[in-house]
């Protein structure tokens, strides 16, 4: 019994440290996302990378004006692939919004130039 807990404790700590995206089922049920991924032998390393990416995305969201608590919740709602995609290219990803002031200035500039040219 003691041996078992000695093994489980580090695993549990590791899980906590990683903030596993799936709320850990107690005991040793295999969580659904793990069943779904064709896990490689590198599963542990992949989890560490996920954890780092998650922190990175949260940081970037905060840098872009999302407040801390909201950023945590928002990252928690993303799945692994989405986090990966954001970590890779959050800055170049299209942000559906509306026309920005800067863009208006550009458009008007181009329009003026076109009119002058004609």
């Amino acid at each position: 019994m003691k041996k078992t807990s000695a093994r489980i404790v580090p695993v549990a700590l590791f899980s906590l440290a990683l903030g596993f995206q799936t709320p850990a089922l107690h005991a040793e049920l295999v969580a659904t996302p793990d069943v779904a991924t064709q896990a490689s032998a590198d599963a542990e390393r992949a989890k560490v990378q996920q954890f780092l990416e998650q922190a990175n995305v949260k940081e970037r969201l905060q840098a872009m004006g999302v407040d801390g608590i909201a950023a945590t919740d928002r990252v928690a709602a993303l799945d692994q692939q989405e986090i990966h995609a954001l970590a890779q290219r959050i800055d170049s990803m299209p942000a559906g919004g509306n026309i920005t002031t800067m863009e208006w200035i550009l458009i008007i500039l181009v329009a003026i130039l076109v009119v002058i040219a004609l």
Binding site: L61, A63, M64, G65, V66, A70, D73, R74, A77, L78, D79, E82, I83, A85, L86, I90, M93, P94, A95, G96, G97, N98, T100
Partner: peptide, 23 residues
């Protein structure tokens, strides 16, 4: 808005749109 809007980008990103649906 609190779940998808990013002030500095003045817009919302695709993965977060999907995440907000799930939330």
């Amino acid at each position: 808005t609190n779940e998808v809007y990013i002030p500095a980008r003045q817009g919302s990103l695709q993965p977060e749109m999907l995440a907000a649906v799930r939330r």
